[in-house]
């Protein structure tokens, strides 16, 4: 129970922090903390919980008030990235987060272009994607550190080395 409530609360706090503080202070240089949090949670929990965390977090991100885009865009992207991050495992969480941070802005923009968002052009992508990727890369170690502190050190995924043999894995 606590295992599922903690990520939900963490994501909620990060969502609010993102729009209230980070976006307003850093303007266009704001890293995507929601994406990075989803990625680090997914690496700790595995593919299935990762997908569920990504979907729920993305849906909440779509619904977060100052929103003007089509509902479900972030849910799709974060669901996929959560699954991928979970599959990649928690051996090198920083590398996985970096990959997500670089890929996600392009995926969101690509999905927007498919849906006919008027502002997505190659010129915009050429400046905005590298900038968003760099911001995410800079913020990734901080988010990883913060989540590790919150969870009390680097904990292995439940299952292999646990003393409780029948511990259910992947129940999100």
């Amino acid at each position: 129970m606590l295992r599922n409530v903690t990520p939900a609360l963490l994501l909620f706090a990060v969502l609010v922090l993102q729009v209230v503080l980070v976006n307003r202070l850093l303007f266009t240089w704001a890293p995507d903390l929601v994406l990075l949090t989803v990625a680090v949670l997914a690496t700790r929990r595995g593919p299935l919980p990762g997908a569920v965390i990504g979907f729920c977090g993305g849906l909440a991100y779509d619904l977060l008030p100052p929103a003007n885009h089509t509902l479900g865009q972030y849910a799709l992207v974060l669901c996929f990235l959560g699954y991928a991050a979970g599959r990649a495992g928690d051996r090198l969480p920083l590398l996985v987060m970096a990959g997500c941070g670089v890929l996600a802005p392009g995926m969101v923009a690509g999905l927007g272009a498919l849906l006919g968002a008027p502002g997505v052009t190659w010129g915009v992508l050429a400046t905005a994607w590298p900038r968003a990727a760099v911001c995410n890369l800079v913020a990734a170690p901080l988010v990883l550190w913060a989540v590790n502190v919150l969870y009390g050190g680097h904990r292995r995924r439940a299952g292999r080395t646990e003393l409780v043999p029948g511990y259910r894995r992947g129940a999100a």
Binding site: T28, L64, N68, P105, A109
Partner: peptide, 16 residues
Amino acid sequence: QVVARRTVAGFEDTVE
């Protein structure tokens, strides 16, 4: 008073 902001390159520039 502006309380929150979202800027995604290309699609949205909104405040709450």
